[in-house]
Design a protein around this nucleic acid. Structure first.
Lengths: 124, 124
DNA sequence: TTTATATTTAACTTATTGGTTAATTAACCT
DNA sequence: AGGTTAATTAACCAATAAGTTAAATATAAA
């Protein structure tokens, strides 16, 4: 499983890892802090592994600080995911006929880098 | 891996399956039609399996029609994904100070079921 | 230099994933 | 009935994932 998107999806396909990410969304934390809520249900090496999966998927960044390893969220890959998802938005938008109106509110009036929707329709 | 969200993410963590979904986003298709682009690189049973993964994740619905099995996309699970992702939007939005303005354009003025952002902050 | 804390690595196990080929089922068409 | 097309199931295999315990490494502190 080589491509970025697959790696992102795979990393998120685990509730433990999503919970870790959720914690990091509230601020930096080192490994043992992240580990705390899970040590009842799994070992520390298991946590190290989960963090490594998140790191390889670039969803977090681990740095060094004395004997600690502070981790920071990096939601960049989620941005790519969001972009990928845009091609399906119309399928889940509540009423199809509101969609036109919706696009008018979301796409910046006078062009301006584009925000959501109507994304470039790249293949995959 | 029991929860819905994990199943959705896992199903999407494969480029073949994402390509199948992309095809179905352009309209219904039966198994052999879906299979065509992949038969150079994998067997039909492999395709059956991929479709089963998508089906179990509720991303597609398979029905019967004579000897064919037409498949239809069902993006409902992607909606849940999108909702989950909302809690991270602020991390990838380009400039944080434009965010406020952005929310004003996206959240319907006089309440009205909410469209994006500020989603219910559910745990996980 | 020993000790304590934080984290990782190694080695192993079990289950799941993604693929294969061969055989089977299902529905239709002569 | 016999053949063709569509799709699935069965049985198998290799690679990966998710966990374990035990040992190792890194930094700080006594």
């Amino acid at each position: 499983m080589h491509d970025h998107l697959s790696q992102t999806f795979a990393a998120l396909a685990d509730p433990t890892r999503r919970a870790m990410l959720a914690q990091l969304s509230k601020g930096e934390a080192n490994v043992s802090q992240i580990a705390k809520p899970f040590l009842k249900s799994m070992s520390l090496p298991a946590i190290t592994k989960h963090l490594k999966v998140l790191e390889k998927a670039s969803l977090i960044t681990k740095t060094k600080e004395a004997q600690w390893r502070p981790c920071k969220i990096n939601a960049e890959p989620l941005k790519d995911m969001a972009q990928w998802m845009e091609q399906y938005r119309m399928f889940w938008e509540e009423s199809f006929d509101r969609l036109g109106e919706y696009l008018k509110t979301v796409v910046p009036k006078k062009n301006k880098k584009r925000k959501l929707a109507k994304a470039s329709r790249s293949k995959e």
